[in-house]
Design a protein around this nucleic acid. Structure first.
Lengths: 140, 140
DNA sequence: CGTGGTTCAAATGGTTCA
DNA sequence: TGAACCATTTGAACCACG
């Protein structure tokens, strides 16, 4: 986590932003009516380099592309652990205002800290390419 | 670190303040200019009975990393008791100048004296790695 | 058999009040 | 201040469909 950001309050952070300059995913804080997945699409969140996207063959000793935990297979089109799978299901379609980062929106996500920043965790889920389209239509 | 200390040193105290037999820790604390830990050391403060506390048998047998009290799990990413958890919530985001140590800023924190020096208690909370990042943003 | 979906106990941040 | 409580999130285990 980026502790340096702490001197800025969240309110300051939001106020500092220019209202009509929604160039990035993070600045989308200002514009609050869309869900995370829409935002990701609209603002073209950069994808991480995808060595993680292995051929769908071997299922042993896999590592979650989000947090690094042990993984047993694909979930929503990427190799992830069970907890990130459940997390993605629960959060991918939420309104972004429910998932604010307390810092600069670039928290590292690890197995130890993954539950401390839902914003950056879901952001990373999308960044590695997890597909919300696979979520059943009833939840959309 | 010597923030807002009184001028008397621990050594001065021990030399000049021989307690008489009627002195108790509590009486002394009322007019204290002295470090809690020093007082405790000098006046042989009776230990609280832990049996009551220990009776709450739960699954785990953990010890608070701040004060040593019985702990039941993680709070703010470290194993702590419920009281240090609540204390951290209340104080982690305060201005440090609101939390003055009367002494040298190095009070020992124990289950018995933890509430006597908020400065040193919060200092220890941070020293053991409690994460203020987990505090929800609305309190910042 | 793989993976999306479900369940639920455990964990833990937050609240209350004496 | 801290014991007791409450509410929400989590993730391991499981189910079931294709």
């Amino acid at each position: 986590m980026n502790i340096d950001c702490y001197s800025i309050t969240e309110e300051d952070f939001i106020n500092e932003m220019e209202p009509n300059n929604n160039d990035t995913f993070d600045e989308y804080f200002l514009d609050s009516n869309l869900c995370v997945s829409t935002m990701i699409k609209k603002y073209d969140v950069p994808m991480l380099d995808n060595n993680e996207y292995m051929k769908k063959t071997k299922k042993k000793n896999l590592q979650c592309a989000v947090c690094g935990a042990r993984a047993f297979g694909y979930n929503f089109d990427r190799i992830t652990c069970e907890s990130c799978k459940a997390f993605f299901r629960r959060n991918a379609l939420k309104n972004i205002m429910e998932l604010k980062c307390r810092f600069d929106g670039n928290c590292d996500i690890t197995i130890e800290n993954r539950r401390f920043c839902t914003y950056c965790r879901i952001k990373k889920c999308f960044a590695i390419g997890m597909l919300y389209e696979i979520l059943s239509s009833k939840e959309k």
